[in-house]
Design a protein around this nucleic acid. Sequence first.
DNA 1: GATGCGATTCACT
DNA 2: GTGAATCGCATCG
Length: 217
Amino acid sequence: MRPPAQVGDLATVLAGPVDVAARALLGCRVAVGDVEVRLTEVEAYAGVGADPASHAHRGRTPRNAPMFGPPGQLYVYFGYGMHWCGNVVTGPPGQAAAVLLRAGEIVAGHGAVRRRRGLRVPDRDLARGPARLMAALGLDGTANGTSVLDGTGPLSLTPSPVPIPAGAVRTGPRVGVGAASHTPWRFWLAGEPTVSAYRRAAPRPRGGRTGAPNVSG
DNA sequence: GATGCGATTCACT
DNA sequence: GTGAATCGCATCG
C-alpha cells in the first residue's frame, strides 16, 4: 500500500489516473471569492472510448473541449436546460478524463452562499448536489476552461488541511448514470451530511420490470 | 434541418 | 415518491 499523497502533489495527482485524483479531491477546498467549500463528494469520468458515461466518450466536441485540455482545468457544462455542473480535468492532456464536483460543506462565506441559495435552505443543502455546489460558488459557464491551480481563474483548489484517512472514503456507483453503472467511481466521505443521496439513473419507460432492488445504504 | 435526451432540482401529494 | 421545467448538444435524415 502506498501512503496517501500529500497536498503539495495536487497538480501531480490531477495528472494521474482519474479515480485516484477523484479520491484525492475529497476534503480539498474550493474557493471563489470569499466563499470556501470543503469537497465531500465527487465522481470520476474517464475519457474517449473508456467510459460510456463520460461526455468525452464519443470524442472531442465543442462542449467537452475543455476535457481534452491540461489537468487542473475546469470543465463546466449546462444540463437540463437550467443547471451548471463543474468538473476538474485530470490525466494527461488529450485523455479527456474529469472529476465531477458533486457536493461539499460550506466552511466560509455562509452569508453570501445563503443569500444566493435562499435563506430558508438548511446548511447541509447549500452545496449538496453538483448544480447546487456551482450555484453556491456563484459559478457558471464563464468559468469553463479556466484553471483551478494557478489562480488565473475564479476558482482556486487547495489541498485538505488535514489528511483524509483511507477508511473515511466510501465508493459506489455514480449517480444518475445509466451506462457503466457497475463502475464504483463515486467517492464520498463517510458520515458527511452534505453528501447527496444515491439516486438511480432516470427510469426508462420501456420494459415491464418494476421495483428492482438496488443499491442501498 | 429536426428531434431526443441529459453527470438535476424544486414543488407538490 | 412523482412529475414538471428548460436549453444546448449530439445524432440522424
